[in-house]
Design a protein around this nucleic acid. Structure first.
Lengths: 333, 333
DNA sequence: TCAGAAACAGAAAACGATTTCCGTATTTTC
DNA sequence: GAAAATACGGAAATCGTTTTCTGTTTCTGA
């Protein structure tokens, strides 16, 4: 592949002139023409590696996340990538499989690649910014990491508390008091927030925790399925179910279908995130959806700000949206 | 961030020694120790950019695909990434949004990054390898591109012909002769293969094309929905439906649900790809699933072979799998 | 026409690693 | 114990750009 040297020779100018012309510094008209032609003739493409070395910036941000086979994450990356690409950055994706050791290795890898910034959905639990990213501009997504005020990192996530609060109100307003809630692992941040939001709304309406049937487990289809079956088998089963994540929603829907229960008839159902499943269901499900696209965009924009040296330390909560289907109805007493 | 020079100084050796030690060449025990310690003390991480420049290989492969918000693609990337990472390669993902111009720009970008190989789901239609990738080792996924025998590229995809052939047999065996088929755009390669496979099986069983109700349109939920409604409204509607892609399947399921038709009772249904929807449906759907994980792995392995200089020119067809639910039954005459 | 200013071109020094090549230590062999 | 063989360390070249800094043109205005 042609180098800038060969272009210079063919054009009869110095490499400095070629470089300047290609980077927008003014050169003599005749030279510009000659360079242009040489570039075309040799199909010259500047070596970004050499460029990156000299400029000590490769215009790359790392993205560190648990999995690639999960639309929640990939839709976020998609938005992140759109924003970053527009500003000339490329995106280097690394998968952790939720393994802390692997996470550390991949992070090391990204640092060796001299990334300019990081977008991370960290797995490591009780971690602060410094141990994860050092002094790298970083935006955490769907996680809150202890954020030094004005430091080089921020967080972007849905307002999980408000989402669950709203969900509870939705169900209570319809007349439910005996509600089953399917939560993710207690070790994660978001399930705790969702639990807290839900409980807050309930207690405000005088519904004690003892009437609630809260279950927590993995974020998986199987867990959702299992927990739903458990709840349905209770002597006094709940009149409404709230599944707080995509996988739990899928599992729950499956269990209901198997039990011959139509959401909104035998029991009310409030799901999370899976817009498509909600639409395709009959009747359509009521679901709370996270603004994935906006989360991605916001994270990318905040990261660009951090890279530009502006202070971070923000925690950006984005509102969720409730898509009303017909799966939340009055309870049959 | 520390450089190899500072490590050398602190360890009291030359940069050559540091480099050698870190790259596995034997050095004196005492020096090894000193380097080790200096590396730790300075938290030295080799600059992969400088390294890449000198070695003229950055151990990176590009991935060029239409979208990131589609599990079919992201599951493939996931597998690709696993295989490549194990061999020390990183994956640089670029999205084309199915826009040929953008595809060209992103490809240019990847070449400037001096990637060692490419995995591509090209959008550009009638294109041959040379115009897309030049002499870059390339594996095309879910597309067949005119492959120079022994050249530096190969293709990996499902055996779409066989999949559709099998689908037709499945339905014919159950007794259906009046079958509605939902296909993707005629301008793509895979819909044509699927159509051909389906027709081949039908004609073998003496079912003329005139009895079939073949519709083609976009690969979208809306198209699937629309085409299904059209078919259901016919004076003599089909007794079975075959949706040939994930989105078409979703749209079709939605239309059926809305029409109050249960797949496998009023009408038989054969879907594609969406394992989760198939499982969660009631009754579970019979679907043909593509071996996404294996497609990804195979593509990555083939690419590694090409990068190692072995000849390409292969077209690798991987068998699909039929997951039998209860949505294909005998027709009610 | 010429001095001074402004515009531009080019040689060479970075950037941070790897690698070659040569010289010195160390070991082996008789 | 000396010569030959081997092992190892280090100076310097290299990868392909950008950028600085100096030197040369070209332009301007009286």
């Amino acid at each position: 592949m042609a180098t800038i040297r060969e272009v210079a020779r063919l054009a009869g100018v110095s490499v400095a002139t070629v470089s300047k012309y290609l980077n927008g510094t003014k050169v003599r008209e005749a030279n510009a023409r000659a360079v242009e032609e040489a570039v075309r003739a040799l199909d010259f493409k500047p070596n970004e590696i050499a460029r990156g070395l000299r400029k000590s910036s490769v215009m790359t941000v790392g993205v560190l996340l648990p999995e690639l086979d999960n639309l929640f994450f990939t839709e976020i990356i998609s938005a992140v990538d759109s924003v970053l690409e527009e500003r000339g950055y490329s995106t280097l994706v690394c998968v952790t499989h939720s393994d802390p050791e692997r996470e550390q290795r991949r992070l090391d890898f990204l640092r060796r690649k001299r990334i300019d910034g990081l977008i991370a959905v960290p797995t490591t639990a009780a971690s602060d910014f410094a141990t994860i990213a050092g002094d790298l501009p970083t935006v955490f997504v769907d996680r809150v990491v202890s954020v030094p005020p004005g430091g080089k990192c921020s967080s972007v996530l849905s307002d999980n508390f408000a989402a669950a609060y709203g969900a509870a109100e939705e169900l209570i307003r319809a007349g439910h008091t005996r509600i089953g809630v399917l939560l993710g692992p207690d070790s994660n941040y978001t399930p705790l927030e969702r639990r807290a939001g839900f409980l807050a709304a309930c207690s405000l309406h005088g519904i004690g925790a003892e009437k609630l049937l809260i279950r927590s487990g993995e974020y998986s289809i199987e867990a959702g399925y299992r927990m739903t079956r458990e709840l349905l088998r209770l002597p006094d089963p709940p009149t409404a179910l709230f599944a707080t994540n995509n996988e739990l929603t899928i599992g729950s829907v499956k269990a209901l279908a198997e039990a011959g229960i139509t959401a909104g008839e035998g029991i009310s159902f409030l799901g999370f995130d899976n817009r498509t499943l909600a639409e395709v269901s009959h009747p359509p499900l009521t679901v709370i959806v996270q603004p994935v696209e906006e989360i991605g965009r916001t994270a990318a924009e905040e990261l660009l700000r951090l890279i530009d040296g502006e202070p971070g330390g923000k925690i950006l909560h984005l509102p969720t949206e409730t898509i009303r289907g017909a799966s939340v109805t009055n309870p049959i007493i």
